[in-house]
Design a protein around this nucleic acid. Structure first.
Lengths: 340, 340
DNA sequence: GCTGATTGTGAGATCGATCTCACACATTTA
DNA sequence: TAAATGTGTGAGATCGATCTCACAATCAGC
């Protein structure tokens, strides 16, 4: 199909030299006479020669491609990171192949399995499961560079870039407590996911440190989609002694809470106070604006890309783990609780 | 680095046959004895053999990879499409390589240029410029399958999936006029972009059909980012005889308008009515909710992917062009103009 | 028993770029 | 002058999978 097929051979023929010499001239290594080099370069230019990366990859064993496996590319958090990674990689002439795991461990395994036969150079990965991780361990052990983002897996020995989930969640709940709330609901996603565990720990630790007992009825678990979060919210607020505040563990759940509360006729912050993990553009468009724990989203992608590029460049270091701090952005979705 | 390297040769040796026979057994073609085939399959299984796609690609000339070049992967519209394309491709054992053009023609050219040496099988592309398109024409002429989405380029002879931009915009403006508005502002992006042209045409046609003169002062051009749209909004509404309504050509501009109007203390729909092109999650979270022209976002990706897969399968057809209708979703951001 | 299919298998070429090695010839050095 | 470097180039191997072709067998039909 592809009509074009200017190979090194063509260039060599046009310049009247052997393929070996042409290769030397083009990649400037070894001995090549000045005149010869010029002839080769000129011929390559004239014919519009472009090296076939697949052929190079066959020899070198690696394509200039990096795989990115986020939980869901539609989540703005991952979309932003994908964009930043791509920009950084492109600066180093690498391409980004994106494959969503859709938060499904089996799919994650299949993806990794199928991508490895592509001779991809390395992976940036947001592991779906904090426990089921043998496939990642295996990958790393075979020497494929891997950088984990957003979530880590204990057993895997590799670089990672995450966020202070526990601290962020704790700060959020501390803030609610400081405003007089004690019955604080939690909208969390499945415990399999690393961030869910950490953020739950933060919630728990904050309560404990304030001497508030953890009430399991106030914790609502659901999948991380707007629809599921709406249901979970309604479940949570249908109880007689409903919470006076909620903490949501990610932006999708925050949106769900917003819609769920609205459908129940509960107003924020009058009837319920709300703090969400992860800032998102919508948070400043609502009335009132939503108080959130912001992550340094713009720093994660570039750093992860740099770490991976270091590995690709052959740097041998102990695994580096970066954990960014979060920042509580106070807006208007939390009210001081009167009766206190 | 990669320790593993189970090649066909290893499998052949383990099964005591030649590479040729092993290949025949594994890909089931040509004559192979039943017993032999079994031995090969068993050996492959035991060794965990996986065909090296790069080597296959070198022979066949094509990697099972498709390139997707959106304007901006962070735009939820494109993120959704990327997700859908990827899911569809994966069903056919193809991978998706995403490279943002960042709405920059030069970058688009470079990307295409650099990806072609990767022996990518085809492209799904949202062309940045409606006019500067020689590079795409060239690509298509060389036989590389290309599917254009969201935007088309006249000269390019290939499949496309777009939306009825003119009709959608016209319907939006018709609706504003029906509510008594005559001074209708437009927030549009650069005219280089195809959708901007069509949507502008819809705006214009609606006005003309209602006998309303086009006032150039009511048209504000800016780049399609929230920040630029805020400025453009403020420019537009700082005039003495400001518009009573605005139509925004995409969701980023709609967000910009929302913020710009808010910063000026203008309330929707009391002071200004608003209709935006492209529905987005935020539109239902604001108060009032925003009236928009919705695109069938969920149909674009799958269709584009199928069209491309057809081409990859070798189907020779005349270029197919699909133009989806849009749908006006009336919410609360438009008020009936009293004085009329 | 002899041609001619039908099966089954392996040797070797191919895809394109790169690398090793050997061989020239030129220039120093002992 | 002989030996040791230095410089420039090409033939051929290599990466892994696949495909062509040649060559055996085996079995049918005459």
């Amino acid at each position: 199909m592809t009509q074009k097929g200017i190979t090194l051979k063509d260039v060599a023929a046009a310049a009247n030299v052997s393929r070996a010499t042409a290769a030397r001239a083009l990649n400037s290594y070894g001995y090549v006479g000045d005149g010869t080099a010029l002839r080769v370069l000129e011929a390559a230019e004239r014919l519009g020669y472009r090296a076939n990366l697949v052929a190079q990859a066959l020899r070198s064993g690696q394509l200039p491609i990096v795989g990115f496996i986020p939980g869901d590319i539609q989540n703005p958090f991952f979309a932003r990171i994908a964009h930043d990674i791509e920009a950084e990689l492109r600066r180093h002439r690498h391409n980004l192949l994106i494959a969503s795991s859709e938060e499904n461990v089996e799919q994650e395994k299949e993806l990794l399995e199928s991508l490895r036969s592509l001779s991809i150079r390395g992976f940036i990965l947001a592991p779906t499961s904090a426990t089921d991780s043998q496939h990642i361990v295996q990958l790393a052990r075979e020497g494929t560079p891997v950088v984990l983002i957003d979530r880590v897996v204990k057993e895997v020995h590799c670089d990672s870039v995450i966020v202070d989930n526990e601290g962020g969640a704790r700060e959020a709940v501390d803030y609610l407590v400081a405003n007089g709330h004690e019955r604080i609901g939690l909208l969390r996603d499945e415990s399999r996911i690393f961030t869910a565990q950490e953020r739950f720990a933060g919630y728990q630790n904050s309560l404990v440190s304030h001497g508030i007992a953890l009430d399991p009825w106030l914790v609502s678990v659901s999948r991380s989609t707007v629809e599921h979060a709406i249901e979970a919210t309604i479940r949570l607020f249908s109880r007689r002694d409903r919470p006076t505040a909620v903490f949501t563990v990610d932006s999708l759940m925050t949106q769900g809470a917003l819609l769920g509360l609205r459908s129940m006729g509960l107003s924020i912050p009058h009837d319920v106070s709300l703090v969400g993990f992860d800032d998102f553009n919508l948070a400043t468009f609502t009335d009132p604006q939503i108080t959130v724990v912001a992550q340094p989203t713009s720093e994660i992608g570039p750093l992860a890309a740099k770490m991976l590029l270091d590995r690709l460049a052959g740097k041998k270091l102990a695994p580096r783990h970066t954990r960014f701090p979060t920042r509580l952005i106070v807006r208007g979705s939390v009210s001081q609780l009167h009766g206190r």
